[in-house]
Simulated scan of single mutants.
Amino acid sequence: MDPIREGHLSEPGLLVIDVAGRDDATVFAFQAAIARLWGTSTAEHTTRDVGQPGVRLRVYTDLRQVLEGAPRRSRSRRPRRKAWSATTGGVADPPASTVPHPSPACPVGG
Rank of each mutant, 00 (worst) to 15 (best):
P102A: 14
L57D: 14
D62E: 08
A20P: 00
D93V: 12
L63H: 03
T47R: 09
A43F: 04
A96F: 08
A29R: 15
G51R: 13
L37S: 09
S41C: 05
T98D: 06
L37Y: 02
V66Q: 14
A33I: 01
V66P: 00
F28C: 02
V16S: 14
A43N: 08
H45N: 11
Q31E: 08
A83H: 04
G21I: 00
L15R: 15
A83F: 02
T47H: 06
S97V: 10
H8L: 02
A96P: 02
A35W: 02
P79W: 12
G90K: 07
P12C: 04
T87M: 14
R56W: 12
Q65A: 15
R36Y: 02
W84V: 10
R56E: 09
R22L: 11
Y60H: 14
H8N: 13
V99K: 11
R58L: 00
A32V: 00
G39L: 03
S74F: 05
V59M: 12
T98N: 03
Y60L: 10
E6C: 03
F30P: 00
T47I: 12
D93C: 08
A35Y: 02
L63Q: 02
T47L: 12
V108F: 13
T46W: 04
T87S: 13
W38N: 04
G39W: 01
G13K: 06
A29V: 00
M1N: 09
L14S: 07
R56A: 10
P53A: 11
D18C: 02
A25S: 11
S97K: 10
A32Y: 01
V50A: 15
Q31P: 07
R81Y: 01
V99F: 03
L14A: 07
R77Q: 08
W38S: 03
D23V: 04
W84N: 10
T88I: 01
R5N: 08
M1W: 04
G110R: 11
G89Y: 03
P53D: 14
G69V: 09
D62S: 14
R80G: 01
R56L: 06
V27K: 02
R56N: 13
S41L: 12
T46D: 03
D2F: 03
G21L: 01
R77Y: 08
A35D: 10
R72C: 03
P94H: 00
R48G: 05
F28G: 02
T40I: 00
T46F: 07
Q52Y: 10
T42Q: 12
F30S: 06
R77E: 09
